[in-house]
C-alpha cells in the first residue's frame, strides 16, 4: 500500500443555505408560479462560501493543526477531507483509511447498552463483526466503565459517554485521522490514558488533522499549522511559528 497522503487543489466549498422558507414545498411552488418557473434557478437560495481555493499537501508523518475563529471553515475542511462534502471547485485526494472523529456522539444510540454502542460505532467505522468481537474486551477495558457497559448509555454521565465514544471511535485502525476539538473528555485519569492512546494513534495514523483553538494542544500533537480565515487558508508553517500565526 502506498503511504498516506492528502492533496487538496484549489478546494472550494460553497453551502447553499436553504432557509426555513425554502424547505417548504408550498413556498417553492408559490415562487415557481409567481416568477414563472423559477424553481430551477434556485431563487432565494443563498450561497455561503465556506472554503475558497484551499491548497494543501500532507504526507505521512504530518500532523497539521487547523486554527481560526469560529466559522472560519475548520470543520468544513475536516468534513470535506472525510469525504462527506464534495468540492464545488478543485479537488481532494486522500490515500489511506480515513477515520473522522468530528462528533463523538455520531452513531451513538442512547437507549442501547455500552457494549452495543461499541459494536455499532466500530461497524460504522468500517470494522467487520469478526474484528469487533476479537477486540471488544480490549475496547471495553479501555473505557474503564466495567459493569456499566451492560447498562443503557442514557444512564451515563457526560464524562462516561465521552469515554465510551472516545474508546470506540479510536479503536478503528486508520492512516488518516481527522479530529475536531473534543479531546478534553473524561476526568484527569482518563485524560492521561486518552492522551497516550492519541499519541499512539498519531504515530500509527501517518497523518493527523486537528482543529483546535488551544495552543498547548497544538504544540502537543502537531508539527505543522495552518490558519483559516473566512475560508481562506494561510501557508502551512512549522509549529514553532504558531504564536506568530495566532497573533496575526
Amino acid at each position: 500500500m502506498t503511504a498516506a497522503s492528502i492533496t487538496c487543489t484549489d478546494l472550494t466549498i460553497r453551502f447553499p443555505v436553504y432557509g426555513a422558507d425554502a424547505k417548504s414545498l408550498k413556498k417553492a411552488l408559490a415562487r415557481a408560479v409567481a416568477v414563472g418557473g423559477a424553481l430551477g434557478r434556485h431563487a432565494g437560495v443563498t450561497d455561503v462560501t465556506a472554503l475558497s481555493n484551499v491548497n494543501l499537501k500532507l504526507e505521512a508523518g504530518d500532523r497539521l493543526g487547523l486554527i481560526g475563529h469560529n466559522g472560519s471553515g475548520k470543520t468544513t475542511l475536516l468534513r470535506a477531507l472525510s469525504g462527506a462534502y464534495e468540492p464545488d471547485d478543485g479537488s481532494i485526494e486522500v490515500n489511506g483509511r480515513i477515520a473522522s472523529l468530528l462528533d463523538l456522539s455520531m452513531g451513538i444510540d442512547p437507549s442501547a447498552t455500552g457494549y452495543e454502542n461499541i459494536r455499532l460505532r466500530c461497524r460504522i467505522g468500517g470494522m467487520s463483526s469478526k474484528d469487533i468481537e476479537g477486540r471488544i474486551d480490549e475496547i471495553a477495558e479501555f473505557t474503564g466503565l466495567g459493569p456499566f457497559l451492560s447498562m443503557p448509555v442514557k444512564t451515563y454521565s457526560a464524562g462516561m459517554q465521552g469515554r465510551l465514544a472516545f474508546a470506540a471511535a479510536t479503536a478503528v485502525e486508520c492512516d488518516v485521522l481527522l479530529m475536531d476539538e473534543w479531546i478534553a473528555v473524561g476526568d484527569a485519569d482518563f485524560q492521561k490514558i486518552a492522551h497516550k492512546r492519541l499519541l499512539k494513534l498519531v504515530e500509527r495514523a501517518g497523518i493527523l488533522v486537528l482543529a483546535t483553538h488551544e495552543a498547548p494542544l497544538l504544540k502537543l500533537y502537531c508539527n505543522k499549522v495552518m490558519k483559516l480565515e473566512g475560508g481562506v487558508a494561510s501557508e502551512i508553517v512549522d509549529i514553532r511559528k504558531v504564536d506568530e500565526l495566532l497573533k496575526s
Binding site: M127, S128, V172
Partner: peptide, 12 residues
Amino acid sequence: METATHMLRTGQ
C-alpha cells in the same frame, strides 16, 4: 477492513 483506501473528490 472494509474502508476505502483511496478517495478522490473533485468539483467536476
